[in-house]
């Protein structure tokens, strides 16, 4: 082995982690190579210096700090568990209430017509068609639902006449055009889930 290869294994040799064959080769090389011997001495001295660095000792309250930390974490886990119980229970209870209310409404179409349907009615929408426009510009739509044989009238305000509506993008480009009736329906449908619970109904 030349010096370069000896230096590659010198660290393991010093640590006693080389096999007997390598040991013999390195030992023989060190006997005749002062440069590699000096390198070995430097490695050993650095190691000795590291081992002799002044040690730290644990502060007197180290154990106390550990147990305090453990107590804090355990109590916070318990708190989280209580919180988790709440975060599961509250939505579950709300869901149950919603199911009960929804089932009552499905069985009582008259209540839906009276404005108490809320969001559940929007889920039951299948189509709608404009019927009348009153003097205030409020337009009445008949909304069909999945409830067999039942439709409810809904009034949505601030809907301009279809022929007067300008598409926003065309307006920006200086051109104008009319909304298709499907877009008006979409506009109304978008409002229904929010408004159906409290709209004025025209009979």
């Amino acid at each position: 082995m030349n010096c370069s290869k000896i230096k590659d294994v010198l660290s393991a040799f010093i640590d006693g982690e080389t096999d007997s064959s390598t040991n013999a080769t390195v030992q023989a090389h060190l006997l005749r190579c002062p440069e590699c011997r000096a390198e070995r001495d430097r490695i050993e001295k650095i190691g000795a210096r590291l081992r002799n660095l002044p040690p730290l000792t644990a502060p007197s309250d180290f154990e106390y700090r550990i147990y305090a930390d453990i107590r804090n974490r355990v109590s916070s886990v318990h708190s989280r568990n209580r919180l988790n119980w709440r975060t599961v229970f509250v939505p579950a209870a709300a869901m149950m209430v919603g199911i009960i209310i929804g089932s009552i409404q499905l069985r009582s179409p008259a209540e839906i017509a009276g404005g108490g349907a809320g969001q559940s009615m929007a889920r039951n929408l299948i189509s709608m068609s404009p019927v009348t426009t009153d003097s205030e510009g409020l337009r009445e739509y008949t909304i069909d639902t999945y409830i067999p044989g039942y439709s409810t009238p809904v009034t949505v305000d601030a809907i301009p006449d279809e022929n007067e509506m300008v598409q926003p993008d065309r307006n920006r480009s200086g051109q104008s055009g009319n909304y298709a009736s499907s877009q008006v329906n979409r506009y109304v449908l978008d409002q229904v889930p929010m408004r159906v619970g409290y709209e004025r109904t025209i009979y």
């Binding site: 660095l53 730290l56 000792t57 644990a58 180290f62 550990i66 930390d69």
Partner: peptide
């Protein structure tokens, strides 16, 4: 405890942080 404190200290070179990390180890 002393061995872990020293090990972490030699890794970090910062006594205060070494104490905190060693504490975390035992926790």
């Amino acid at each position: 405890q002393d061995r872990i404190i020293n090990f972490v200290f030699r890794m970090l070179g910062d006594e205060d942080t070494a104490m905190d990390i060693a504490q975390e180890v035992f926790v």
